[in-house]
Amino acid sequence: TSIVNVSSSLNVRSSASTSSKVIGSLSGNTKVTIVGEEGAFYKIEYKGSHGYVAKEYI
């Protein structure tokens, strides 16, 4: 489990790309479970499925 480190919110994306669809967002200090990594993104558990967040904010 890791913590989201942002002051406002962090986009959760459908794939490991800044141009991919935003499927949701997480607020600062939210706990997330990392299940993998791809480039500059972590794959996380998100709403019963998976999403991707930028590593620099975790």
Rank of each mutant, 00 (worst) to 15 (best):
S2G: 15
I3S: 08
I3G: 10
I3Y: 11
V4W: 04
V4N: 08
V4Q: 08
N5E: 09
N5P: 08
N5C: 15
N5D: 08
N5V: 14
N5M: 13
V6Y: 05
S7W: 07
S7I: 13
S7C: 15
S8A: 12
S8W: 13
S8P: 08
S8F: 13
S8G: 15
S9Q: 11
S9W: 12
S9A: 12
L10A: 13
L10N: 05
N11F: 12
V12N: 00
R13N: 07
R13H: 15
S14C: 13
S15L: 09
S15N: 08
S15D: 09
S15V: 05
S15W: 07
A16M: 04
T18K: 13
T18Y: 15
S20H: 04
K21D: 11
I23Q: 02
I23R: 02
I23H: 02
G24F: 10
G24Y: 06
S25W: 15
S25V: 15
S25T: 15
L26W: 03
L26H: 02
S27T: 11
S27A: 14
S27K: 14
G28A: 15
T30G: 06
K31E: 10
K31H: 11
V32R: 01
V32G: 01
V32C: 05
T33A: 07
I34H: 00
V35C: 07
V35Y: 05
V35G: 01
V35A: 04
G36M: 04
G36C: 07
E37G: 04
E37T: 07
E37Y: 06
E37C: 11
E37Q: 08
E37W: 08
E37I: 08
G39F: 04
G39L: 05
Y42E: 00
Y42A: 03
Y42I: 04
K43G: 01
K43C: 08
I44V: 05
Y46R: 00
Y46C: 04
Y46M: 03
Y46S: 00
K47G: 11
K47Y: 08
K47W: 06
K47C: 14
K47P: 02
G48M: 05
G48K: 05
G48I: 03
S49F: 09
H50D: 05
H50Q: 06
H50R: 04
G51P: 00
G51E: 00
G51Q: 01
V53A: 03
V53C: 03
V53E: 00
K55V: 04
E56G: 07
I58H: 03
